[in-house]
């Protein structure tokens, strides 16, 4: 990474010059970012809020985009960090608004595919955050262990053990398929 400084400067210039290109790439990434966010948050509206925050952050930090890493990894990382920020803020608020509504699910879960989505999202929501992120990146987004570990900023061994525990818990909650 010794050349990082130069790289980043170049990237900033490139991105500035091709910000249109970045925007176009972001549009093509939106469906996957939404799916990832949906796996993290369980709530469709929260998920889109998260994607929107991530897009806004990405556009203001385009200079930090590393030319050697795919845009998708960078974006998944931003989505996840935005979610961690939100969880911290909620934890703080929840302690002070203790009687506030907890995330009980209301609504009609009777339709087949929709019901399965809810069952899966409920199960995901019950995982500890770091296991949920590992599962979402590897099993849903189809990333390699290496990419997922990079996004979560942990060693591969940590990623695999979170993934293994998350998987085990999900299998228990969802039953055999």
């Amino acid at each position: 990474m010794e050349e990082n400084g130069t790289h980043e400067r170049n990237a900033a210039i490139d991105v500035g010059a091709s910000s249109q290109g970045l925007r176009e790439e972001l549009v093509t990434l939106l469906p996957r970012l939404r799916r990832f966010a949906r796996a993290l948050t369980r709530d469709a509206h929260d998920a889109d809020d998260l994607v929107q925050i991530a897009v806004e952050r990405a556009l203001t930090r385009a200079g930090q985009l590393r030319p050697d890493a795919p845009l998708s990894s960078w974006m998944f990382g931003i989505v996840r960090n935005a979610w961690l920020d939100e969880l911290r803020a909620r934890g703080r608020r929840a302690r002070l608004f203790a009687p506030a509504e907890s995330g009980e699910q209301v609504g009609d879960a009777s339709q087949g595919a929709h019901a399965d989505l809810l069952a899966v999202q409920d199960a995901l929501a019950r995982l500890p955050e770091e296991q949920r992120a590992a599962v979402a990146l590897v099993l849903i987004e189809g990333l390699s262990y290496k990419e997922a570990a990079y996004i979560m900023e942990v060693p591969i061994g940590t990623l695999t053990s979170r993934l293994a525990r998350g998987r085990e818990a999900l299998q228990e909650m969802l039953g055999e398929t």
Binding site: R34, Q121, V135, T177
Partner: peptide, 18 residues
């Protein structure tokens, strides 16, 4: 099977209008 189940549940998000 678990991977398949997760994908089946969440992949429809990809086809939603943006």
């Amino acid at each position: 099977a678990l991977r398949g189940r997760l994908r089946a549940a969440l992949d429809p998000v990809l086809d939603e209008p943006l």
